[in-house]
Design a protein around this nucleic acid. Structure first.
Lengths: 342, 342
DNA sequence: GTCAGGATTGAAACCGTTTTGGAAGCTTGG
DNA sequence: CCAAGCTTCCAAAACGGTTTCAATCCTGAC
């Protein structure tokens, strides 16, 4: 059942039927109802492909996922972000198209998406220091919003980010206030922008109290359970072990905790941990009361909002770049306590 | 730059240009080269929307993700599967479109996808006992492949699954051979097909040795760290605790391990654990040597292959339903050892 | 030199919508 | 009673490709 059939069926022209269905004012209310009813009766749905060609809009937003030789975006955070963004898209009649490409073809993927007209806009994931994708997308001329920011980029662009610096600064202060002086940072890869900002927050907070950060207590790598475990174990074995850990991810923290258990150290008493909690759907920080003290910010909600921003940008292409900075809340769990007196 | 412009530019008809680019045989080799060169020079890429309308094919495969009140598909396994499937799609010039919808609208989502012509095929995730989606998709008439199976469905359908029953049977036998008699099963939700099959494998293996499964040692819930932790702790505290755990997911196992540590039990000596390892990219079971003894099967590879199957089905709509049963390998890690003699 | 038949190319229809530019029919006010 | 102005509808032209059908150009056989 297509528009033309429906039209002849009703004794109307395709034009009128189209207008009736799309809510144009110049159609008689009674005929509109007649059309609506007929459409429902034949459960007619307009063909997306035709709409797209006729309107020149793709009604879709693209997410490019580089399949990596090195660092992968395909991580737990990504899944929840996508879920959040997807909610927004469905609500607004947009499709979400994922492009999984080898990372050396990422630039070409964006170019393709634009010149084939597959999508109307893009969400950029996991921005890095001085990320080249921003200049690229600007050149290509595709509306885009960055989830995160790219330190070092001079041009204006739209982004949504968590205030990573601030949240890690506060977390560090919280530990300092508890008397901790040897605080370890288990961070993500520090060419990722969020990791850089978290590190800055950490270092700033220490500096404000006149503490020189100890390189031996600053670890940066992929955020896996294993890396967290090994880094923490290493530090705990050292001559001057940390009394607290600031951990960039729940998963790394699982490893840190394992190291603690292995060393016979009690969480919250012997050693404190603060994590960043993205509120992943399958890695809750406790069901009722939080297990870990954490800087918390829902990545799913970030997905929802970033998607809203990109839809807004698509609808108003001339709008200047927008940005949103979400504040993570510091929630107090059972994983922190006063620094043990030696 | 569109086809018509390119054609006039070359002094050719759109027909010829189209044919040249699409590799039709009836075009002179030299003109083809001329066309190819011009296309590259002007970096012309055909408009997806036009192709889709003209050919009637969407060149896209859909994945519907119900956003759940209850169980969510948005889980770590899903991300890796998607990444694998996405690889296959890109390689074949297909798009992947994700539809995130409230779970009570899932059926309608499939219907829409079909009648609007947004996709040419579907991959069905997380099948359950007697899953209604199979009958629905068959009725709707959209080619589809199920990742997993749906016990109880009588109609034939295409699927790709891991031999869950067999792998858990083998794992159980392995533990039995090590002398374990009280083996706990930490399973996923048992309305999910994979969980049912794993349970069956577990129970069958016990039965074959004349062991009556103890309901107190069989746990079924969402596979989170927290649930795993609590279930294991409960069991370990009981009067007659298990000496081994068979765990359906790496994440649950992290919780089980935490419970062990908390009880002061040494993994592999006091208590053995076998997990199912989906080879998630960010939750590796050890970098070099496996930490856990595991039934291993790459969900990413499953994604690749399932996608291949659906593309094949789209290309050959009259083919009878296909299926692939992948065998998980049993890899020996450091988490299993002989049952402790009382 | 002619002609059949393959090799190339092109004109035009088509895919299913939206949208532009009228054109009827009906009011309405002078 | 008529022109102006609304309403309400429609024919036809996009949108940017693919595909059918027909036309032209060669080539070699006779």
């Amino acid at each position: 059942m297509n528009l033309k059939e429906l039209a002849t069926n009703l004794g109307l022209s395709p034009t009128t039927v189209s207008r009736a269905l799309n809510g144009y004012p110049e159609v008689n209310e009674t005929t509109r109802e007649r059309v609506m009813a007929a459409a429902k009766r034949h459960n007619y749905l307009p063909n997306t492909r035709a709409i797209r060609l006729a309107t020149g809009r793709a009604m879709a937003v693209g997410h490019v996922i580089p399949i990596a030789t090195k660092h992968e975006i395909v991580n737990p955070v990504f899944a929840d972000f996508i879920a959040g963004a997807g909610e927004t898209y469905s609500r607004n009649g947009y499709d979400m198209v994922l492009s999984v490409v080898p990372d050396d073809q990422e630039a070409q993927a964006y170019r393709d998406l634009q010149s084939r007209g597959t999508v109307d806009g893009i969400i950029v994931h996991a921005p890095r220091l001085d990320d080249p994708r921003i200049a690229l997308l600007r050149e290509v001329g595709l509306p885009f919003v960055v989830h995160g920011r790219a330190t070092g980029t001079k041009d204006a662009y739209s982004w949504l980010d968590v205030n990573n610096r601030r949240s890690f600064q506060r977390a560090t202060e919280f530990l300092l206030d508890l008397g901790h002086r040897r605080i370890a940072l288990i961070n993500g890869l520090e060419y990722m922008d969020f990791a850089i900002r978290r590190r800055t927050g950490f270092v700033d907070a220490l500096a404000a109290r006149g503490i020189q950060p100890d390189p031996a207590l600053m670890f940066s790598d992929e955020m896996t359970e294993g890396r967290g475990y090994r880094a923490a174990l290493e530090m705990l074995k050292s001559r001057n072990p940390p009394t607290a850990f600031l951990v960039s991810s729940m998963i790394s923290a699982l490893g840190v905790r394992r190291a603690l258990d292995e060393r016979g150290l009690k969480l919250g008493r012997d050693v404190s941990i603060i994590i960043h909690d993205d509120e992943l759907s399958y890695l809750r920080n406790g069901d009722d009361v939080p297990i870990y003290t954490a800087t918390r910010s829902s990545v799913r909600e970030a997905g929802r909002q970033t998607a809203e921003m990109v839809l807004d940008l698509i609808a108003n292409p001339d709008k200047p770049p927008q940005s949103r900075l979400l504040e993570a809340e510091l929630i107090i769990g059972q994983s922190t306590g006063p620094a043990p007196s030696k």
